[in-house]
Nucleic acid binder design. Structure first.
Lengths: 149, 149
DNA sequence: AGATATATTGAAAACGACTTTCACCTTCAC
DNA sequence: GTGAAGGTGAAAGTCGTTTTCAATATATCT
């Protein structure tokens, strides 16, 4: 999402939508995050400098970013969604620790290749995919696999 | 989930829980489904023969089944969860058509192997994983990729 | 700049899936 | 059978997210 802010404004213009201070502030913080973040967390961050901006507007802006192809919604646990900036290239997937809740990212070209093959074997035209692996991370294994919650 | 009903009753016994008519009916229909199903759909099915059984009890029973390792919760869209019977062996993943909403299952041992390798490279002890691919299925491509919703 | 049309805002209410509460009802070990 | 421990359905409550609505900001036209 290099130059994400300009891309976002172009998107707004194209759709006859307006550039506002709130959207600017939200998009700026979202880009700074550089990692998946929940709407609530993003709101907290934005509200430090702009206390008047509501959570509702954060949700709306995230949906706009998604529409612009600049953010992607993810759902790891059973509860809230996370949003992550769409960086120029390179898809990544996630390793999620069920003990500490930590989320680790990785990329693997071979897996991607196999996925494409499976998809075309089934006659699918692939648009997106996600791979999530759940387990115990190195740290938690050392610590003795204590469970959270 | 061959012999799922017996396994479930064993689980109940082990935990000091009781076998009830409602649970029997719900588990029986769940096993018959043999495929992912939402709580709501399962309830609808069960209610045909047992109109008094509430959706609440279906949710509770599904959580029990999950605890017993006989069902697995999945979340494809952004809305409801699906539950699928855990069959004895063989993990499968999903191809989801964004046009018609259809869900197709597949298995691929090579991908599984690569996943395990990635996990161990990161020091992870894998417990579970899920792979979902989104795209347009063969039928919808023929039909001209109309969008649902 | 001022007027005008249209989009945007925050607060509160609504939403949908799911969970909890509660008073009554089963189940099962004795 | 009896009684303690669980289970039940209905209604109320949660939680994350979306919608509604009256007030306000932005872009465009003059």
């Amino acid at each position: 999402m290099v130059g994400g802010e300009e891309a976002f404004q172009a998107y707004l213009g194209r759709r006859g939508l307006k550039k506002t201070r709130q959207r600017d502030a939200i998009v700026r913080e979202f880009v700074k995050a550089r990692r998946h973040i929940t709407a609530e967390d993003l709101h907290r961050t934005v509200a430090r400098r702009h206390p008047a901006i509501g959570l509702v507007t954060v949700y709306r802006t995230l949906r706009l970013l998604e529409g612009a192809g600049l953010a992607k919604e993810r759902r790891f646990g059973k509860t809230e969604s996370c949003y992550e900036p769409v960086l120029g290239v390179g898809h990544h997937d996630h390793l999620i620790c069920t003990a500490c809740g930590g989320i680790f990212e990785f990329e693997n070209v071979e897996i991607e290749g196999l996925q494409d093959r499976v998809a075309s074997q089934h006659g699918f035209l692939i648009q997106d995919h996600k791979l999530e692996m759940y387990g115990i991370c190195r740290e938690c294994r050392k610590r003795g696999e204590r469970r959270r919650r």
